[in-house]
Design a binder for these strands. Structure first.
Length: 287
DNA sequence: AGGGAAACCCGAACGC
DNA sequence: TGCGTTCGGGTTTCCC
């Protein structure tokens, strides 16, 4: 669910100046809200203890208060609020969302942690399934150190990607979803990238030649950039305002025609994950 | 090292 | 209609 493009979309909303998709009316959630950059955190309320990974509630509420939000960045699927003294890290996991609301609104049922901001605003971490986690740390590297390269970082070259692929003997699908291998891909964008690259999800990473590795990295970048351009995908009941779900090539399109060749899309399970692919465009043998 | 399974969760979808 | 069951998805942990 929230993967790199969704997290990046939320990051941009939080910075302010959010724009509606072309031809669509403004929405009711964060996109018509002012940004939170430069605002002081007046107080914090932890509504579900386990959402807070560190520190414990009382210390968190004490330490986060009276710090100002100086910057908002992203690393993989982590959203990072840079405060005066510390960093506030969010991982949305399955169902997390960050909303900017008027401070007087009653708390929605699935709000797990809220920060009261100056200007009568509130930053709310909403997470129906309670998988999301929040950290307040002085050094974000303690949390982020094991993440693989950023796929959209232009300093990350196809040659480096090929070397990484050859260093493993793993199926492409679970390898691409491994955040220590490459950061930011989840189930949706992995299936989409593999289809665009015409590579079978069960293909073994070690067997990719330079050309296929370059094609795969290019495909990863294309689907991530399209996801960001469309402001992410809104799937299940979690509405985030994006419309990439209307442009999926294979994800959750089992039985529908492949956009390339018309063959019905197949669904298999790989590493406990639903995996969608075209059996004609994505051959396991020579591609 | 890599793969499989379970755990964490709960709303939605499905079956009866 | 309403109940019970299954599913799915990101990550960690544990076991083979």
């Amino acid at each position: 669910m929230p993967e790199l493009p969704e997290v990046e979309t939320i990051r941009r909303w939080l910075l302010g100046g959010g724009e509606a998709l072309p031809g669509q009316p403004p929405q009711h959630t964060v996109r018509d809200r002012p940004g939170i950059l430069g605002r002081e955190i007046l107080a914090a309320r932890v509504l579900w203890e386990r959402t807070l990974a560190a520190p414990h509630t009382a210390e968190f509420e004490r330490r986060v208060a009276h710090q100002t939000i100086r910057d908002i960045t992203r690393r993989g699927k982590f959203l990072i609020l840079h405060l005066d003294q510390e960093k506030l890290l969010f991982h949305l996991r399955m169902s997390g969302d960050l909303l900017v609301e008027d401070a007087w609104l009653p708390l929605a049922p699935h709000h797990r942690l809220v920060l009261e901001l100056e200007g009568s605003l509130r930053l709310a971490f909403n997470d129906p399934r309670k998988f999301g986690r929040v950290w307040l740390v002085s050094d974000p590297q303690t949390i982020l150190a094991n993440l693989g390269p950023e796929p959209l970082d232009e300093r990350f070259t196809p040659e480096q990607f090929h070397t990484l692929l050859r260093a493993h003997h793993r199926q492409l699908k679970p390898l691409l979803m491994d955040q220590t291998f490459i950061a930011g891909l989840g189930n949706i964008y992995t299936d989409e990238a593999l289809h665009l690259a015409r590579l079978h999800p069960l293909m073994i990473s070690h067997t990719l030649d330079q050309e296929k590795a370059a094609r795969l990295l290019d495909s990863i970048r294309q689907v991530l950039e399209e996801g960001i351009r469309r402001q992410g995908a809104s799937i299940d009941w979690v509405y985030r305002g994006g419309d990439f779900q209307n442009h999926f090539r294979v994800y959750q399109r089992t039985g529908e025609p492949c956009p390339n060749c018309g063959t019905p899309i197949q669904r298999i399970v790989v590493g406990q994950r639903g995996t969608h692919f075209c059996p004609v465009c994505q051959k396991l043998e020579a591609g």
